[in-house]
């Protein structure tokens, strides 16, 4: 489904990445802060353009040439959920849906499911500029999932949240990735978060290079570098 092989020059090093990810699969992208993980997601999302290589998602060629952002069937959630402050929570969540889609029963049911599961009912009419950081993450998650994208990219979306909320959000994401069938690539510098979110497969980046890929059991059993060993030590 996702076929990505590309390089991206950064000021300090070059990020080289390659991945083939099947439909409905999830991948944890792990490494220390500044290893190039966010750059990888930004290139796949289209926020940044790779310097070389190719990215295909199902039948769509994302790069090269760069496919315009509005044609990319991708959900992208970052640490800062970037809600539209001039709109209500409801309007943020339905932002990417056309009028016809909003009127459609199936879509309406799906939005109602998101609203209930993410406990958004009390906030529904509130301005997005007036809600707390934790609430904003839930709204951002609902907005991303409202269009049911086939690929979801998560760039440390749980940083700074309390453990209980993180656990709930991870459970929701895992549940929906199975029920909707979207693929998922998640970035985090905390291995325990990634192991819960993407339990099967992980790629480890150091200085922009892939140093190891495999199951979490393989990574924990035989870490390829001293840095990875130290990152996994707390587990």
């Amino acid at each position: 489904m996702l076929d990505a092989h590309f390089t991206k020059r950064r000021r300090d090093f070059t990020v080289s990445f390659s991945l083939e990810l099947g439909s409905g699969e999830s991948l944890g992208l792990f490494g220390a802060s500044g290893a190039g993980k966010s750059t990888v997601l930004a290139c796949i999302a289209g926020i940044e353009d790779p310097d070389d290589g190719h990215i295909h998602l199902a039948d769509a060629r994302l790069f090269p040439p760069p496919l315009p952002l509005h044609r990319r069937p991708i959900g992208y959630l970052t640490q800062e959920p970037s809600l539209f402050p001039h709109l209500s929570v409801r309007d943020n969540i339905t932002f990417g849906l056309s009028k016809a889609e909003q009127a459609d029963t199936e879509h309406a049911d799906w939005i109602a499911t998101l609203k209930n599961r993410l406990k958004l009912a009390p906030l529904w009419s509130a301005p997005a500029s007036r809600i707390s950081g934790g609430q904003a993450r839930r709204v951002g998650l609902a907005r991303m999932l409202a269009r049911r994208p086939p690929l979801v990219l998560l760039d440390e979306p749980f940083a700074g949240l309390d453990r209980q909320l993180v656990r709930e959000l991870i459970d929701d994401l895992v549940f929906w990735s199975k029920s909707i069938g979207f693929s998922m690539i998640a970035v985090d510098h905390r291995a325990d978060v990634l192991m819960r979110l993407c339990p099967r497969m992980a790629i480890v980046l150091e200085q922009g290079q892939i140093v190891q890929r495999g199951s979490w059991a393989e990574l924990c059993g035989a870490p390829a570098t001293p840095l990875l060993r130290s990152l996994l030590a707390p587990l």
């Binding site: 289209g46 315009p68 509005h70 959900g75 992208y76 970037s82 539209f84 932002f95």
Partner: peptide
């Protein structure tokens, strides 16, 4: 206007013209 808001709007399927008028 933060550029990330415009990019998020585009990733939600809005054309550049609609991003301009809605965000």
């Amino acid at each position: 206007v933060p550029s990330m808001l415009q990019k998020q709007a585009a990733l939600l399927g809005l054309t550049p013209a609609r991003v301009f008028f809605r965000v």
